[in-house]
């Protein structure tokens, strides 16, 4: 059980299969593929959460995994997030490699003590004796008229805590490569998915590949303005970029992919070209990841800015239920286009 040496992954990050191809699968299948590939490789990995086994996943992410790996490795839990999050943390300390699924990150709030106090701080509190190689993953952000308590974006709140890594993919290809890296990493990783993207379809290579943390992807190129985002709103930025192109405005769209680490170098490089930045973030604005990006860009590239940085967040109210209110509350391509045209114009 006890392995004293740090189990650092030996991963060849230089292998990156093409993003374009014919093997079109859903986002949820890409996640499943990442978990299943890693579980075949390493028996210490298990998946635990509400409805992951017999129900085949509340959102069908783990469909079929019970059949392949059996009930000792695909484990249904009661609705008891604080309990099973803590169980997973200690299992990780003891040498296992748990993947703990939160049906929604909204529900992780009742496990805040375990996931914020124990997982990210165990290594420090024990003076380097015990790390916590665990992945917490699940849906983050507004799922669609779920109301205020079920629509949390936890990245602003949780990324404040040192000791964990945070990953927020925006597409199936990255989801697979990033989740595989997350499972191999010896530190706690918070992996944030979106219910609204699980059905998104794209080419995902069938082979194994890993995407390194801390490397943003330039998803669209232009020189008028830098759009920085992560997770689902990256897709809004790409839509906005397409529309803006019709108006003769070409933008850089940076998909950060990980929040901790944050590839500030890529943002600086882009801003040195565009001299303008809009940060799109589906969290509330106060003390958000957008605030952090804006602070860092002011620290690192203040002289390159021709205008103050701009942020597009959700509105600063609890998430509303009514369809029109929720639509008005969330970031969307129109808001991004407005922000960019205001900044460029």
């Amino acid at each position: 059980m006890i392995q004293y040496a740090v189990d650092l992954p030996e991963i060849d990050f230089s292998y990156a299969p093409p993003r374009e191809g014919e093997r079109v699968i859903q986002f949820r299948e890409a996640l499943r593929e990442a978990m299943s590939e890693e579980m075949r490789r390493d028996e210490r990995i298990f998946l635990m959460g509400e409805e992951v086994a017999e129900y085949n996943g509340a959102y069908k992410v783990s469909q079929g995994m019970l059949d392949e790996f059996g009930p000792k490795r695909i484990i249904d839990t009661p609705i008891s997030e604080n309990g099973f999050a803590g169980l997973g943390i200690a299992a990780a300390m003891a040498g296992l490699r748990p993947i703990v699924e939160f049906m929604s990150w909204s529900f992780s709030l009742v496990a805040a003590d375990q996931i914020l106090n124990n997982a990210p701080k165990m290594l420090y509190m024990s003076g380097g004796q015990w790390g916590c190689p665990i992945v917490f993953r699940g849906n983050d952000g507004a799922g669609g008229q779920l109301g205020s308590t079920h629509s949390w974006c936890v990245e602003g709140l949780y990324s404040n805590v040192p000791g964990m890594k945070m990953v927020i993919p925006s597409n199936p290809y990255d989801a697979k490569g990033l989740l595989k890296t997350a499972i191999r990493d010896p530190d706690p990783v918070f992996f944030l998915e979106s219910e609204r993207m699980l059905g998104d379809r794209a080419h995902v290579p069938p082979e194994e590949y890993y995407i390194p943390f801390g490397q943003a992807r330039l998803a669209r190129e232009g020189d008028a303005c830098t759009l920085v985002s992560f997770g689902r709103p990256v897709n809004f930025c790409l839509e906005a970029g397409e529309a803006l192109s019709g108006q003769g405005i070409e933008v850089d769209v940076l998909d950060m992919r990980t929040i901790r680490p944050l590839d500030i170098d890529a943002i600086v490089r882009s801003v040195q070209k565009t001299n303008r930045i809009v940060v799109v973030d589906q969290c509330w604005p106060f003390a958000s990841v957008a605030s952090e990006v804006m602070a860092q860009i002011c620290e690192h590239a203040f002289d390159w800015l021709d205008a103050p940085p701009v942020r597009v967040n959700t509105d600063d109210v609890p998430t509303p239920y009514a369809k029109n209110l929720e639509a008005a509350y969330l970031p969307n391509p129109e808001k991004i286009i407005r922000a960019v045209t205001h900044l460029v114009g």
Binding site: N82, G83, L87
Partner: peptide
């Protein structure tokens, strides 16, 4: 807070025995 962790240590011990 240590009580779910205690369950996890026991879980790991049993997993080690029965799976690994």
């Amino acid at each position: 807070a240590q009580t779910p962790l205690g369950a996890g240590l026991a879980f790991a011990a049993r997993y080690e025995l029965e799976v690994l």
